Amino acid sequence: MTAQDLRPATAPATRRTAKKARTPSAPAAPGRLARRIRENLVAYLFLGAGVVLFAVFSWYPIVRGALLGFQQVNFAEPAQWVGLDNYQRLFDDPLFVTAWRNTGYFTLLALVFGFAAPFLTAVVLNEFRHGRAYLRMTVYLPVMLPPIVTMLLWRWFYDPGPGLFNNVLEIFHLPVQQWLESENMAMVSLVLVSTWANMGTTTLIYLAALGGIPGELYEAAELDGASVRQRLWHVTLPQMRFILMITLLLQIIGTMQVFVEPFVLTGGGPNEATVTVMLLLYRYAFVYNDFGLASAMSTVLFVVLGLFALVYLRLTRTKG
């Protein structure tokens, strides 16, 4: 009898069965599966709550406002569908062109003053080695004031009688100015108020960006004999190009919605020289009680600002 005859006859079958047999994966513990479902359920509940809040308080008002632009609405009678009549009346209103022209003028002046001033302030503050935190707080203080308080304070500054600015001019024997009563000076005066009240936030953004610039670049520029102006032009500006572009677009979007300054300080005068898009929209809705025309005006403004928002999103996506 050979050794082959002594092997068990079932061995090959056993090996084949072992190859086919697979160890089944252990089922998930009931407690772990329940916990996973519960965690996902809570996440979906929070997500659903956020979607509902956005839908009710953000998306619905936008859609509702767009629809009101095609209706005659005064909330005293049922709304009537009028199609494009509101837009026709809007474009025929002479104040529509005046408001956009004044808004564009305000935005341009705000870019000249309000865009350069925070950047230069941040560059100067960044050079200080002592008291930097105190100076930052000082620059940011106007942002913490309520807008109405700021407007009332500056109304006293601009007062043609006992106002601070005219008193200073009289001390230096300079002619006093009609800051808010002159058509030529009123818009400039509003821009100065807006710049002073809002530059703190932008200044802090620029300071954070300046802190992220590698010091080796400035050291190399100094070794090459670069002056302060050359370091600013060849090092600081290129390194902050993206931040400057983003703040520029955000400032355009913000200044085109200016309302508080002309509403409190000038009321749109003198001679409609400071009436802006938002102020005219307010008049349509709450002075003339024509909410359909006001909604049409808001839709036009929404489209214009949406174009700038698309540019902003494109820039941020390119950077990312």
Rank of each mutant, 00 (worst) to 15 (best):
M1C: 11
Q4E: 15
D5M: 02
R7G: 01
K19C: 02
A21G: 10
A34W: 13
R35H: 08
R36E: 10
L45D: 03
L47G: 13
G48Y: 07
G48H: 04
V52N: 09
S58L: 03
V63K: 05
F70W: 04
V73T: 00
A76H: 05
L84E: 02
D85V: 02
R89F: 00
R89Q: 00
V97H: 06
F106H: 06
F106S: 11
T107F: 07
T107N: 09
V112H: 12
G114S: 12
P118C: 11
F119L: 15
V124D: 07
V124A: 15
L125C: 05
L125D: 09
E127L: 14
R129G: 14
R136Y: 14
Y140M: 06
V143Y: 14
V143G: 11
V149E: 05
T150H: 08
D159R: 03
G161H: 09
P162C: 00
G163I: 06
F172T: 13
H173R: 12
V176L: 03
L180V: 08
V191R: 02
L192G: 04
N198Q: 13
M199G: 04
G200M: 03
T201L: 12
T201M: 12
T202Y: 12
T203L: 06
A208W: 07
E216G: 10
E222C: 06
L223D: 07
A226D: 13
S227I: 07
R229N: 04
H234R: 10
R241P: 01
L248W: 12
P262Y: 06
V264F: 01
L265G: 02
G267S: 09
N271H: 06
E272M: 11
L281S: 00
Y282I: 00
L293N: 01
A296W: 01
L301H: 01
V304Q: 03
G306P: 03
L310I: 06
K319V: 10
G320W: 07
